[in-house]
Simulated scan of single mutants.
Amino acid sequence: MEITGKITGIKYKLFLTDELKQFDECKFDINKVPTACIINDGKYSFAISKWVSPKRTRSYPYERVYNTLNTSKKITVIPIVKDEGAAGDRDFLQWDTVSLMSLLDVYVILAYYNKAEKAGNKITNQKFENKYVLSKIKEIEQYHSSALHWNISELKTNFHNILKKVVLSYGKIEKKTKVPLHGLKGLQNFQDKIGADVSLFMKFSRDKASKAQSREFVTRQPKENLSTLSKAKITITNYLGGNYFFTVDEIIVSKENCF
């Protein structure tokens, strides 16, 4: 079964959010603070969350963002690439991740890792470049347009610059840890696919997400204990042009409602 839906507006009421700890900007280190917190500089105050991977299905990043939604100005830090080593995964940022953050009025800082530790034939405990993250926070302090405008601008003007930093940083990490990482060809292909046009990034990301949805749709996990064989695809579109490709293990249709 395939189900489609469209978000024409967004209203929400928050429940069960965590109480966020507060940190002074002068002592702020994105690698040491909790996954969601408040940052103050004496004049401005923001809620900030961080992702440990650009992949949306790892480490529950939506929960982290959710805990910041009751603050007027919200920031989330997302690595555009995470490479765990040639023996592990390499994940890339997708267009619709940024689109969803724009829908929720969350400013995205496109970030990169510059430190890591060796763990067997992989790398772990990757650290963001904190000075860079702080510089972007200071930019957002002075930015008075919407999160949507910021996010689109960052994709158009800063994405390729960050990708170059990713290449340099992972080169240094590979040399220091002596752990083979995925080749540069994949990063170059990623950059070429995106090009200078945001619409190319959108198409590239959606093609990958749609294929992943199709693979998951036909996969049967041996450990799953399901009462029905009603696996379904759910594709949701929002008014900002975002497309979200989901797969659910079971679905029940009752009149006009889906569960």
Rank of each mutant, 00 (worst) to 15 (best):
S210R: 12
M1L: 12
V166M: 03
K165C: 13
Y244K: 02
A116N: 00
C26S: 15
G42H: 07
K11W: 13
K223W: 15
I152G: 11
G183N: 03
K55Y: 13
S205Q: 02
Q191G: 10
K131H: 15
D192C: 12
S210L: 11
V81H: 03
N121A: 09
D18W: 07
L110D: 01
W95Q: 03
I3F: 02
N31M: 03
E216R: 06
H144M: 09
K164N: 01
Y112N: 01
D24M: 06
I109Y: 05
N257H: 03
S45A: 07
G171S: 04
S153K: 08
T124G: 09
V106C: 04
K164Q: 04
L93A: 05
S227W: 15
R90E: 15
R90Y: 05
N158T: 14
E174N: 00
E216F: 05
K211C: 03
S214C: 13
F15S: 11
N158Q: 08
T57K: 11
G42D: 05
L163K: 06
I251S: 08
V218F: 14
Q221M: 13
E63L: 04
D83T: 03
G242Y: 00
E117T: 08
A119N: 12
G242E: 04
I30T: 07
Y170C: 02
I252P: 15
S214W: 13
S214H: 12
K11T: 15
S102P: 02
Q191N: 10
